[in-house]
Design a binder for these strands. Sequence first.
DNA 1: ACTTGACCTAAAGTTAGGTTTAGGTGTTAC
DNA 2: GTAACACCTAAACCTAACTTTAGGTCAAGT
Lengths: 146, 146
Amino acid sequence: MYSIGEVAKILNLSISTIRYYDKEGLLLDLERDNSGIRVFNDKNIEALRLIECLKKSGLQIKDIKEFMYWCSLGISTISKRKEMFFNQKENILNKIKELEKALNMIEYKCWYYTEAENDGNELRVKNITIKDMPKKIQELYKNIHD
Amino acid sequence: MYSIGEVAKILNLSISTIRYYDKEGLLLDLERDNSGIRVFNDKNIEALRLIECLKKSGLQIKDIKEFMYWCSLGISTISKRKEMFFNQKENILNKIKELEKALNMIEYKCWYYTEAENDGNELRVKNITIKDMPKKIQELYKNIHD
DNA sequence: ACTTGACCTAAAGTTAGGTTTAGGTGTTAC
DNA sequence: GTAACACCTAAACCTAACTTTAGGTCAAGT
């Protein structure tokens, strides 16, 4: 059993964020003590971990709320929930691909500015044609311009 | 030479987004024709591509504006610019790592719900201990709980 | 008794990154 | 010559996901 402050530390979330999730209906089975104070168990903490993953995968709070509601309905929503996870898997893979594409550009620029810094100016590096770039940089350059 | 509408189509941005970037000072050397209409050249389009990459790497508009300003200052800011790209490279790599961590959880859940769907309920899969999971799922499970 | 610290609520405020609106210009098609 | 289109500006508006504020409860320590 954990207090909201302990959970915040464990998961590195702010207290107000956790209260916000609760208010938005993301923590359906969260209990309170006699004086109304939230009492978290391990299941709640797992739920919060899952919420963070679903957020990173691109789901919005309202969608996560819907998912949590499906969970509360039991067996009848298993297929829906499965489908959602397979969709979010695709979403994450796409996000990773996007980041890798951006990384090509950034790494090209890392090379560019390393050369420019060595030269003391951009004059030479600015005019290098693709065939005169190092192999690795040629690859980056091609990936940027597809 | 391209109109704003053409650029929007090429880069899959909305016209109003491009105007917003211009207003925010991200397109310092963008020209206009006699009647005040924006005229984009290939350099401007490359700048917009770079802006998209920097955004994905986690930079905010105001930071990108600062970077564009550094560019306009020439030689004296080459080291600064280089440093920024190396920082953003780290940022992207961290983002990818975060997504891969989230992916572990999502893939575990994909397995979980595939099993549950086959069984017609969650009773069995809910109680599987780690040593009885398939090797691949054991790995995912460990990565989630570190 | 009283202060401190952790908790509570409802409601207002914040932020980034756009989008929309309202009103206007300039050029081409019929 | 007029209608349709693509462009322009300034300013208001929007949204998600929090965060902050103001006012209050409760238990433990001194």
